[in-house]
Each structure stands twice: as C-alpha cells, then as structure tokens.
Design a protein around this nucleic acid. Structure first.
Lengths: 331, 331
DNA sequence: CTGAAAGCGCTTACAG
DNA sequence: CTGAAAGCGCTTACAG
C-alpha cells in the first residue's frame, strides 16, 4: 500500500549480517534459538530501523492471518457496540486486528460474511447474535474456531459460548413481576431462533405458570430487537380493551419503543404499565434511567471471547457470566 | 484456520487439467487471456468444487490485502456507527472486508492502529474523526491511501475528504438563532484539533458577531463529544446567574447531556433554553424527536468513501455533501 | 546457536 | 490462448 517500499525481513537481515531465519526468531521470541548477544544486537537494529513485519507474509506461511472476525447483527445497538468494543480492545491487545461484518439477522448476509472471513484466513470468528444458516452449519461441522456470543450455537451444544443464563434471568424477571403482583403480564419476545430470546421467554413463562398464573396468548407478542419493532409490537399489544399490567421486553431497545407507544396512549407510568428491559444498554444511564432491566456484563464478554481465541484451538467451553436485575422506577 | 484443508488453486488446476495460471485468470476475469470454452468449463468446475481463493496468497502476491480499515473515535455513538455501517456495506459489496480500529480520540491508540493497519497491508484507511498524531503525519507524508471522514486531515489540505461544510453549517445555526432573537447565545464546542468542531464554532461565531452581537467568553465552553461531556459542560455553563437563551451543541450526544442538565435545573424547555444539536443522530427519532439539529447524510458518506478507495490511488478529492437544518421543537 | 532452503497460495511478465 | 517459472515476505524443519 506504500509508495516507498516497506522494509522486509531480508533488508534487516542484510543490515545485521545474519540470516532471515535469525531475525525471524528474534522478532517472534522463539526460545532457545538465538544467543543473547545476537538477540540484543538485532532488537536494537530493529528498533532503529523501525522495522514492522508485514503480516501478509507471515499470514501465508502460517496459513492464518493475525485477525479475528466479529459478526454482529446490529452495529447501532449500543449494547452490541459495547461488546464489540470490549472484544476489539482485547483483540488489539494481543496484536491482532478485528474484522467486522454486519449480518442484520440475515442468514444470506451471514453466510456471505462467513465465507469471506474464512477466505481471509481469520484466526477466529466471534458470532454475536448468530442466526441459523447453511454456511454456519457447515462452519460448525468443520470445527472452525467459532465462539458464540450472547446466543448459543443453533447447531448442537458442542461450540464455545460466552453469555449469561437467559432462562434463569427470564425467570427472575417473572419472579419480580409476581412479587409486585403485576397481573396480567405480557411478554414481547425476540426471534425464537435466537437461544437468548427463546430462553428468556421460556424462563419467564415457566415461572409465571408454575405460580398458577397463565400467560394469555394475546399477551405473548413476537417481535424484533430494535426500538422500532418494540414500538410496533406494543402498538399491537395495546390495541385491545384489556391491557397488561406489565410488559417484559426482549431487550432495552424494545423497551424504549414500548415506552414510546405507552406514552402516546397516556400509559407511560409504572402505575399503569410497568416495563422491564434486558441488557442494561449503556444508553439507559442517560436516556432511560428509569428502566428496570437485566444487566449483562457486556465489557467482560469481549475479554472472555478473546481469551478463548488465545491458545490455539478453541475449547468448547461455556462461559456463563453473572447478570444482575436492576430494579428501577419502571417496574 | 480449518481442520480439513481448503482447496487451493493447484487442486483446481489439477482437477481441470490446466495450469494454475489459467485458473487464476478465469477467477479474476483477466480479459483476452482465456478462450470462452476453457473459461466456461473452469467456471463450472469452480462452482462445483465450491472453490474460494485464499485471500492470504493473493494478498502476498499483490502486496495488498483485500481489506479496508476504518478508524473511529467512538463505536457507541450511533452517528459514527451509521457511517461505519454505510462504509461496511459499500466495502463488502466490492468483496473486501472491513477492519475496525477504535481510537477513542487518543493519538497513541490512533498511531498503534495506524501501524497495525499498515503492517496488515490494508488497501485503504478511512479516518473517521482523526486526531493529530506523529504516525498520522508520517502516513500522510508517505501518501498512504487515506480518506478523512467528517474531520479534515490535520496535516495540509492535500488529502481526500468526505464530509460537509461545517463552517457554513455553523453559520446557518447562528442565523437561525438570530432570526429567533435568541440572546445571549452560548456554544459548547468539541475538541478544536478537530476541523469539524473548529469550523462549526468559527462559522457560528462569525455570523453572530457580524450581526453585531458578541459571544461572551463565559458562553463559549470547551467540551468533548459524548453525552457525559455535554452534561458536564452544561453544568459548568449554567453554574452562574446569567443563563444563555440558547445553546449550540457540538453534536447531538452533547445536546442529550445538555438537555439532561437543563432538566435537572427546570430549564428544559425551548422557552427557557433552546438547544441545537449536530449530526441528526439516528437515535433522535426515538429519543429526542424534539431536538433541532443539522442533518448530516451519514449513510451516503460511507458510499462516497468506498468510491474513493475503488480505483487504485486515492484522488485527493474533497466531497462536500449537502446538509440540512432540521428545525424542531427545541429551538 | 546459526543458516540454507523449501514452502505457504496466489499473480503475472515472459515465452511460445 | 496457454503454461512454466519466478516472486511476494515470512516461518520452520533440517543440517551443521
């Protein structure tokens, strides 16, 4: 990419009067291969010349580029952005670069990115909010180093996962609703091909029902994960005479949309309709400090994911991080 | 990155009974080099085998990887995220991948990313909200293919730029304030090493002053570009007996923070203190539909930047895109 | 502890 | 229109 050519390993080797192998070993810190004196001499020279190895050559010889891919469903959601942020920091700290793909919950786009990332030889792929897709199924079968974030792998439980116990968290929200005697309750859940959305819904429903209450079909709304879809779902939900006393929203963005619609109907108060979100979106602090929600440790997630990519093959570990119910004014 | 090895050009060549050169030419569509019959036969074979060239090999031979870097100051700001989004779409459409670096307005971080991107051999670098830094100065001198987005290059006017005429836009906001007879007016401006912030401020000030009004020093506040810094700046600004009648904020995030503080003081109405933002952040629609602001065409920006990277060397063009004053309730 | 050399997967000037 | 071969910058098994 440069007008004036970059320095190569060969240039440095020549300047130092040694072989390229030796320079390479010094640069990479290969142990027990280079004498201390040579090492120091070369390190000084490398610093003087400000030599930076070209990752392109290294990638070809290692058959792996110094990059990690992040596929994310929605770049504008501040919660996802925070996860991306934490991951980027952790990745960068290891000297790798982060490649970003935007999947928009679309299997076709996801597969396109998946294929591209593979052809780029990325060292790992973090799937934030994966959707089922043929390419993903194939990638999992090939045992590519994939870590699933927030949503579990749609194909078997053998894949690495970093997130929270959504089933339990959904149940906890239901428990809180019961404690407050909110009745009847409604839930606006996200796409059910997402383990996160499904488990939150199931956990919520199971606790409500095991307490002897029932969750009326009319009060279970299928929605998306954006402010807009939260608005629409709430419009549908409240387009009847009978209103729920409380709504468990798929995430905070949905809760923002729900609040908006409740406001239009003059129902935007905890005394009329209580709202519960999910994620503890960083925007809450400024824009919805009243929103009760489930705090997910989004910055830790990135660190954990990066950890999984560190030592060679990705262990099929499941990191379940702690979450926390934040009870605020809205519920 | 795979367990089972990927197909290589050599594999396909063997299967087709031709040389790797021929396959390469077919894949790349090199004109006037392959007979139509051979081409078709090979294209079919490639499709059958589902062969994807490894970018790693291509990168080394071309001395450039099929990636474009985006350096952004703040991943959580929805306005920047929209620009990143538009760019990602345009980049992906050309078959390239986008590498993302988060600079946090920090020259050291920016230089680290800049060095990393160069060593990765990216085909181009989009600098969203660049800050002055030694590495950037060097990169510009070496004529790397850099496009400055939103903020102009801090080192000379020869670099490619995509954004709006911030000076004029700042003046337009001042014009609106004068028309409404807001007096006195205040401005919370962003970092003055950013051409965008500086020019907005200067344009605003020049119009105010050329109308015979003066901009009191106490009403010119230096701030950052986040909600939090907007909150703090407004706290300082309003910590006196004399309040401004209107505030021109560095961007919408700052305006959110300003609104928050005004609310705490019971001044959050256009009749008490009018607020003007900048960007038309996508969040406005849902969270601050009352905010008057300057709409910047953030999705177009990405497309333009990608265009600049397309045909080889980056022309030192300046794309000044149209902006639009959105007058809403807040001012 | 050090080096000569093969090799990673592609592209392309050159020869035919 | 096609192919043999050199080359991109690095890594690493092998030999010494």
């Amino acid at each position: 990419m440069n007008k004036q050519k970059n320095l190569t390993l060969a240039d440095v080797a020549q300047a130092a009067g040694v072989s390229t192998a030796t320079i390479s070993r010094v640069i990479n810190g290969t142990p027990n291969k280079v004498s201390d004196t040579t090492r120091e001499r070369i390190l000084k020279l490398v610093a003087e010349l400000d030599y930076q190895p070209m990752q392109i050559g290294r990638a070809l010889s290692r058959m792996e580029s110094a990059t990690v891919a992040l596929l994310t469903p929605d770049t504008r959601n501040a919660f996802y952005a925070s996860i991306a942020d934490g991951l980027e920091q952790a990745i960068t700290a290891t000297g790798k670069a982060m490649v970003l793909g935007h999947t928009r919950e679309d299997p076709v786009l996801q597969d396109r990115h998946l294929a591209q990332m593979q052809s780029h030889g990325v060292a790992g792929i973090a799937m934030l909010g994966a959707v089922p897709s043929p390419g993903l199924s194939k990638a999992v079968a090939r045992e590519l180093p994939i870590v699933f974030v927030n949503r579990k792998c749609p194909y078997g439980a053998g894949s690495a996962f970093v997130g929270i116990d959504n089933y339990r968290a959904g149940g906890d929200v239901a428990g809180h609703f019961l404690e407050r005697n909110y009745d009847p309750v409604a839930v606006i859940h996200g796409p059910l091909n997402s383990s996160a959305s499904l488990e939150r819904y199931e956990g919520f429903r199971d606790v409500i029902e095991s307490a002897g209450h029932s969750l009326s079909e009319r009060f279970v709304i299928h929605g998306g994960l954006t402010i807009e879809s939260g608005y629409r779902a709430t419009r549908d939900l409240l387009d009847h005479d009978e209103h729920p006393r409380a709504i468990f929203c798929a995430n905070d963005a949905v809760a923002y949309g729900a609040h908006h619609r409740c406001g239009e109907l003059g129902l935007a108060s905890p005394e009329r309709i209580a709202l519960f979100g999910f994620d503890d979106n960083p925007l809450n602090k400024w824009l919805a400090p009243w929103l009760s929600t489930v705090a997910v440790p989004c910055t830790d997630i990135g660190t954990r994911v990066a950890e999984l990519f560190l030592g060679g093959p990705v262990p099929p570990r499941q990191y379940l991080l702690p979450y926390e119910l934040k009870i605020r004014r809205s519920a």
